[in-house]
């Protein structure tokens, strides 16, 4: 377990260390209200990151998720404003996300264009398209049933949590134990071998992009309904947060490795640090430096068993001994 899940262990120990510091210095962090707020705030990143894990495991990447996120949110808003029931509008937004995802996937899988190039183009095109369509205006005057999907403010987080936990466990289990999940690993670790073994690797790639798009749409809806108006510039920089969580969680961008559990830990670490620093009274101006440092420490801990690290450590120890 320790050997095969080294990155997960390393990130988990960083989270534990952070939690210990908080338990001593700012116990208020663990109030139910705060944890609930944190969960709701990181929900979009979590859902998109799960989809992104699949894409990254196949050896591809998608940086257009932020733009898709913005469009799906606005689409859900416009639809329910025009009288469509809110659940139908939400479903349509997820579908729209899936359409954008499958467009990316088709260009990558069937035309062989590198995914970074494809999604860079769709990121710009979708974002600018939305800007022209809305001219920066927000979607306002939404029907009252839109906020909280017609539920109450206290009910909605439970529903969102149930949906998220079910989806997360389904993907975590399915990726390792279902044939389609194994096909994703096979495609990522050696596409040629996978193909020769009879797998339709193009279909696998197309599918993971489509799933990512649908999850992005769902994330956009679950985020949008927490408010009573929808900004047209949502999700700027979302792709960076998501990819950071995925790679910190142990997925390799070269493909073939990565687990949903690791991604969840990556999301937790990155989402927990920012508010934690506020609770600890750290000035906002130093926050980014500390966040960067924590990422480096969390992944460098993995290198502890590396010979070069031992040399460094022993050099440091001897320096201390001399001093």
């Amino acid at each position: 377990m320790v050997k095969t899940h080294r990155r997960e262990m390393s990130v988990a120990s960083a989270i534990t260390a952070l939690a210990l510091v908080l338990a001593v210095a700012a116990p208020g962090y663990f109030s139910g209200e705060n944890l609930g707020d944190l969960f709701m705030a990181s929900l979009p990143v979590l859902l998109v990151a799960i989809g992104m894990t699949l894409v990254v495991v196949t050896g591809e990447i998608d940086i257009s998720v932020g733009s898709t996120f913005a469009i799906c949110g606005v689409a859900a808003g416009i639809l329910s404003k025009s009288g469509v029931p809110v659940w139908l509008a939400s479903a349509a937004a997820c579908l729209l996300g899936a359409v954008f995802g499958s467009l990316n996937g088709a260009l990558v899988a069937y035309l062989g264009i590198p995914s970074i190039v494809v999604t860079l183009a769709t990121m710009t095109a979708l974002r600018d398209g939305l800007r022209w369509a809305t001219e920066g205006a927000w979607v306002q005057d939404l029907p009252p049933a839109f906020q909280w999907l017609g539920l109450t403010q206290t009910e909605f987080p439970f529903v969102a949590a149930i949906v998220t936990v079910m989806l997360t466990s389904a993907f975590a289990w399915g990726l390792g134990h279902v044939a389609a999940g194994r096909a994703i690993y096979a495609t990522g670790s050696n596409p040629r071998a996978a193909r020769l073994a009879g797998l339709n690797t193009s279909a696998v790639k197309w599918m993971v992009f489509t799933v990512l798009g649908a999850l992005t749409g769902l994330a956009a809806v679950l985020n949008a309904v927490r408010f009573n108006q929808i900004p047209s510039n949502a999700g700027i920089g979302l792709e960076m947060k998501v990819i950071a969580s995925v790679v910190v969680g142990g997925a390799s961008v070269a493909g073939g490795t990565g687990r949903v559990m690791g991604t969840v830990l990556g999301v937790v670490l990155l989402a927990a640090v920012g508010p934690a620093l506020t609770f600890l009274g750290v000035s906002a101006y130093w926050e980014r430096a500390i966040q960067g440092g924590i990422i480096l420490v969390a992944i460098a801990a993995e290198g502890i068993r590396h010979p070069a690290y031992r040399r460094l450590a022993s050099a440091a120890a001897s320096a201390r001994a001399q001093a």
């Binding site: 950071a244 130093w286 960067g292 990422i295």
Partner: peptide, 21 residues
């Protein structure tokens, strides 16, 4: 330390900008 370049530079991406801020 043979850590993945993407994550390391993602970390220093925040670190450098953060120190400057």
């Amino acid at each position: 330390l043979e850590l993945p370049a993407l994550i390391v530079t993602l970390g220093t991406f925040s670190l450098f900008r953060g120190v400057a801020e």
